[in-house]
Amino acid sequence: MSFGEKLSRAWRHLSSSKAEAKRAFPDDTLKAIADAITAGEQTHRGEVRLVVERALPFDCAWDGVTNRQRAIALFADCGVWDTEDNCGVLIYVNLAEHKVDIVADRGIDRKIDHATWQAVCRTMTDGFKQGKFHEASLDAIGQVNALLRQHFPAEGARPNELPDKPLML
């Protein structure tokens, strides 16, 4: 990445505002997402975590950390890898770059391919382009829940291992 590209990317992240993030994901949207995650997790063994990041930390933006690399780091930082059945799924939204990435634990990765996850990501990014953050997020959560229900159906009551409320960074 050239100096100019680094500078442009860093500026995009530095100039991203908390107000923009709040407009995209207001409290009612965050609650609806949490409710959808909670309801879905009652039908499958997966654990779903949504992380919305307004902007990368400056050093990550400057050093060229990719969206995928950041999602993998947050997958670890949020403990999504540490679920009982290795059924954690992290949906990572980078608002400054308008990108979405999904990282699934090894138990899920064996059954659901990358192209399927990319289709879920496109649901979000296509909706975001139209300003439909609420609808696109709920549609994507619905798709993730359906995939997990198909491959990892619920087998009775189980504890909730990860918070259902989206994490806003």
Rank of each mutant, 00 (worst) to 15 (best):
L90T: 00
T83P: 12
R49L: 15
C60H: 11
A76L: 12
L148K: 05
V48W: 01
V100D: 04
K111R: 13
N145D: 10
E135C: 05
D63W: 11
Q143S: 02
L138W: 04
F75L: 08
A136S: 15
H151V: 00
I108F: 07
D105R: 05
G88Q: 06
V120N: 04
N86Q: 14
D113T: 04
D77M: 09
Q143D: 02
Q42Y: 01
A96F: 01
E47P: 04
E47S: 08
C87V: 06
L56Y: 12
Q69H: 07
A136Y: 13
V52P: 12
N86S: 15
D113H: 09
A140F: 03
I108W: 06
R106G: 08
D109N: 10
A136G: 14
D113K: 11
S137M: 12
Q143A: 11
R106N: 07
E41S: 03
I112H: 03
D105I: 11
V100H: 05
V93E: 00
A96V: 02
A73T: 12
V80E: 09
D109I: 00
Q69I: 04
L148Q: 06
A73D: 15
I102K: 10
T125N: 10
V103R: 09
V103S: 11
N94S: 12
K132F: 07
Q118G: 06
R149G: 09
C121P: 02
A76D: 13
K132W: 07
D77Q: 14
I102P: 07
G79M: 08
D105Q: 08
N67A: 12
N67T: 15
P57V: 05
V93Q: 01
G107Y: 07
R49S: 15
N94G: 02
G88V: 05
A119W: 03
Q42N: 07
C78M: 14
A96W: 00
A76H: 13
D82H: 08
Q69N: 06
H44S: 01
E84Y: 13
R45E: 13
V51P: 13
V48P: 03
D77K: 14
G127M: 13
V80I: 15
L50C: 14
K132T: 09
V89L: 02
D105S: 08
D113V: 04
A39D: 10
D77R: 14
E135G: 09
Q42L: 08
G40A: 01
I112P: 06
F133T: 12
F75G: 11
V52R: 10
P57G: 05
A146Q: 07
Q130F: 06
I91C: 03
E97S: 04
N145M: 00
W62P: 04
D101N: 14
R110M: 08
E47Q: 13
I91E: 00
I141R: 03
V48G: 02
G88W: 05
A55C: 07
N94Q: 05
V89A: 03
L147N: 02
T125M: 10
G40D: 01
G127T: 11
L95R: 05
C60N: 06
A115C: 08
R70H: 08
R70Y: 04
Y92R: 03
E53C: 12
D109S: 11
W117S: 05
L147R: 02
N145Y: 01
A55Y: 01
G127K: 13
W62Q: 03
A119Y: 03
Q143K: 07
N145F: 01
H134F: 09
H134N: 13
N145K: 00
